[in-house]
Design a binder for these strands. Structure first.
Lengths: 179, 179
DNA sequence: AACTGTTTTGCACCTTGTTGCATAATCGCT
DNA sequence: AGCGATTATGCAACAAGGTGCAAAACAGTT
């Protein structure tokens, strides 16, 4: 139940059309909440029907024609409430950990290549995040609360990727010696 | 597409009935792949129809009566292949990071309590994992590959929870000073 | 004006996960 | 034998996410 809130956040940052939203989800927002254009259009429809957003009056209701949305007061209230809402963290659900466990039962043949592939992917992502941090958050210059919050989110991404690279490295060295 | 493989792994470790599987998912397996009894029964049906598992002959096909399953050769082969299969890591999708971003737009009122609650939950989980590690993996005594793999999985859980407690602590101190 | 490609929106369908409830066997108690 | 709690399996309906494809508008080209 987070997609609508992701969309509300994005629209508050800047009113957009469905396609623009899709592109923004592919970039920055997608770093912690991914979504396809299908999900986005569907959700935009729901949010509009719920009176939380509306299409900017300029747009006619025909297909294939750009339609920009903005957030209505009800939508902003909903988002504000959601920020403070009590919601338990979901239990971890990671296929890679599961595969290690499976490897314990049927043998780890071929797993090493896959771990190396993941390691490379995570290292690449980590480098990308660090580049963003160097560009957008140079040391000793965060003033607004929004800046600090955005930086915290990015730090989350960086530390998560750091965790994966470290863990995968450990796994690879732990896997090689014995057979 | 990981649930069937989680079930195959569990059944290879020990043939079980649906309810027993559910209990094992609530405990150890659920630490990295959670599932409800509904999902499990549905998937057991599918796996049986696919010829990857079968009910132990002792059981009659009536409702409400225990039915134990074991893995067939086809199931073991499928699991072996899956361990080495190339499958990209899913992009991160975390509501809490999203909420920080939203807080940057509508203000972080009430967020602190929620972060503290999550911090406490993650600390508790971390302590639990560390207890398991101390009990099951005392230093300098891992011989079999299965032991080493299981330990790696547990280390993954421990380091993930460590990440969360650290990040949440940072977030809380970063949130308090300014408005 | 007809064509081709791109932008933009959207429908239909499928899989996975969740919730609530129904039903059958079993066990202990009296 | 009858009652109630527990064990065990399962159906139905729904919500969320994902894939493939269709279709309308638009823009440029000839």
């Amino acid at each position: 139940m987070s997609l609508p809130h992701a969309i509300l956040t994005a629209l508050l940052e800047k009113p957009s059309s469905g396609l623009e939203l899709t592109r923004r989800f592919d970039k920055s927002i997608g770093y912690f909440w991914s979504a396809t254009h299908q999900q986005i259009y569907r959700e935009l429809g729901k949010l509009e029907r719920a009176g939380q957003i509306r299409a900017l009056p300029s747009a006619q209701p025909t297909r294939g024609q750009k339609k920009e949305y903005e957030v209505l007061p009800a939508g902003r209230e909903e988002l504000t409430a959601w920020v403070a809402r009590s919601e338990d963290p979901k239990p971890v659900r990671d296929p890679l950990l599961l595969r290690l466990r499976a490897a314990g039962v049927v043998g780890s043949a071929g797993l090493e290549v896959e771990l190396e592939r993941h390691l490379a992917l995570h290292q690449r992502q980590l480098a990308q995040y660090e580049a963003i941090e160097a560009r957008d958050f140079p040391p000793e210059r965060q003033s607004t609360e929004q800046d600090r919050l955005r930086h915290l989110v990015l730090r989350g991404g960086i530390e998560l990727e750091t965790f994966w690279t470290k863990w995968l490295t450990d796994a690879l060295t732990g896997l090689r010696p014995g057979t």
